[in-house]
Design a protein around this nucleic acid. Structure first.
Lengths: 135, 135
DNA sequence: CTGGGTGCAAAGTATTTGCATGAAC
DNA sequence: GTTCATGCAAATACTTTGCACCCAG
């Protein structure tokens, strides 16, 4: 917790109760859409404004503190920035999981093929989770 | 051309001049955002409605005839569905290129790690294209 | 104190919908 | 002739902005 607060400060963002709540939610849920975040945060801050969430998430993204993950067929999710990783999304229930996989080979291949100076990647798999597969 | 028309028919979509124009544009440009598509298509159909583009792209996506590609920091692009491939996007000028890379290893790894029945993947790299790098 | 953050309401933008007309089959 | 597509306008959804007030530093 204290670490997050320090990080916010380092980025020049003031530490407000609303921001702490946003960070805490991202920590416990991993990834959240804006509407889900709004819904959850209102349990603690009934009077919070959607605009506050937009402004804060945008500020955190601009500071590299949070990442947006775009998904086909669903709202974007937001997550705390951390070691590069990939995602798996269930087409049925929408659940999203992080997976750590080594993308260095594929990234090298992409560099060769495209001649781009590649800086980052976004890798997302879509399928059916075990829970949905067995019900 | 005739092939596309047949494909539209097979999907149960009537072949209208507007739809042919959409498909032709996607063919020549590879990937287009909605607003770019609107801009280009108005050269041929000054009276076309944005709603027509939305409705048609949505219908084509629903039929698996067109795919949406989501990109961080830019509007989604649409492309004709074709063999699975990946994308490279320039953070500077926004240009997008297709690359064919073998993602079977990484996909197997994702299956193992996630226990999902993985059906498709979305792989996009971000960086700087050669043109922007040298200017 | 002082500057930035919050919440509200309003403005802006993006996307979808309903419907009368018109075109494809 | 029937069915579906088009284009317009209206409705809805999503996101940003302006501003008065408030709180963190």
């Amino acid at each position: 917790m204290i670490k997050d607060i320090e990080l916010l400060k380092e980025k020049g963002l003031k530490v407000t109760p609303q921001r702490i709540a946003i960070v805490d939610l991202l920590k416990s849920y991993g990834h959240l859409s804006i509407s889900k975040m709004y819904e959850l945060i209102k349990e603690k801050f009934p009077s919070i404004s959607l605009a506050t969430i937009y402004k804060n998430l945008n500020a955190m993204v601009d500071n590299g503190f949070v990442n947006e993950v775009k998904i086909i067929g669903q709202d974007s999710r937001y997550e705390l920035a951390k070691a590069s990783h990939s995602h798996v999304v269930c087409k049925e229930c929408g659940v999203m999981e992080d997976i750590m996989l080594d993308d260095s080979d594929i990234k090298d291949e992409a560099k060769k093929l495209s001649k781009f100076d590649i800086q980052s990647s976004s890798i997302t798999f879509y399928g059916i989770c075990q829970k949905c597969a067995t019900s």
